[in-house]
Design a protein around this nucleic acid. Structure first.
Ligand SMILES: [Zn+2]
Ligand SMILES: [Zn+2]
Ligand SMILES: [Zn+2]
Ligand SMILES: [Zn+2]
Lengths: 132, 132
DNA sequence: AACAGTGTGTAATAATATAACAAATAACAA
DNA sequence: TTGTTATTTGTTATATTATTACACACTGTT
């Protein structure tokens, strides 16, 4: 059986908004912006977000409690994500670096644990903020 | 001038609790447990946690909104952290792997961004949960 | 004493996220 | 087309996580 391939109305509304945004969006800011489209309660937004994260269309920036659209076409599923975050202007960029992802996907330590997922957040100053 | 070397009473109370715990503790669970010691309000706990994170005595597990004591004696400051998290039993372990930290500390991409900090969370099944 | 820096206590509130339940819809087979 | 299951929705209420604001106390320095 195939995985879901079409988004529901609510999921599409939320995805459209997140994709149009140039910055990470918080759940309640999403809620505010989709109320005119009929999504009135937090739960409707959170449910859409959960699904979109699950299928890899968006990612959650854990340290910011915010969501960004996946810019990496190969990210079918949210299981290996890396971001750079500017601590000054809060700009967030998804890192698409095959060496890094290969390194992390294959990472093993002596704990006997099998990793199937990771999330990495780098912090620093972006080019613009560095030159101020 | 030296950086703060002695913890305040509230900071020490919170640190003691987190260090004694075998699992990550949430802020309000900490609050509940230190109320008998006089820390009555969330803010007293959050302030202590903020400071302890800042000086590297504890770390925040971002994906869980929970705090663990640093088990890595070299972690003077919270700027390069990596954890393994079991998605079944929620066991969290701080990863102390010099190759990994060297790799990530030296990581550069073509964004022109200078990274001075990172946080990495691996997810999977721990040895125990894998064999169930 | 005056000052700066840091920490404290307290109340109120903001921001983030989930529980519970009934109803609607989709997927699919009998 | 009916029954069955799973998923999604709408709604209300509530739980959880975190911060603002403000008055005061403690420390060390000038
Ligand atoms: Zn992605
Ligand atoms: Zn910036
Ligand atoms: Zn540490
Ligand atoms: Zn486990």
């Amino acid at each position: 059986m195939e995985k879901q391939q079409y988004l529901t109305k609510n999921q599409q509304i939320v995805l459209d908004l997140v994709e149009k945004s140039s910055e990470p969006l918080k759940a309640y800011s999403i809620l505010f912006n989709v109320q005119k489209k009929g999504l009135k309660a937090p739960l409707q937004v959170y449910r859409a977000l959960d699904k979109l994260v699950e299928i890899g269309k968006i990612h959650k920036i854990e340290s910011r409690n915010a969501f960004v659209a996946c810019k990496n076409s190969s990210c079918q599923v949210s299981k290996a994500t890396a971001f750079s975050i500017c601590e000054s202007c809060e700009k967030v960029t998804e890192i698409n670096n095959s060496k890094l992802s290969k390194y992390l996907t294959n990472f093993e330590d002596n704990s006997g644990m099998k990793y199937n997922k990771y999330n990495l957040e780098f912090f620093g100053l972006c080019k613009k903020c560095k030159n101020k």
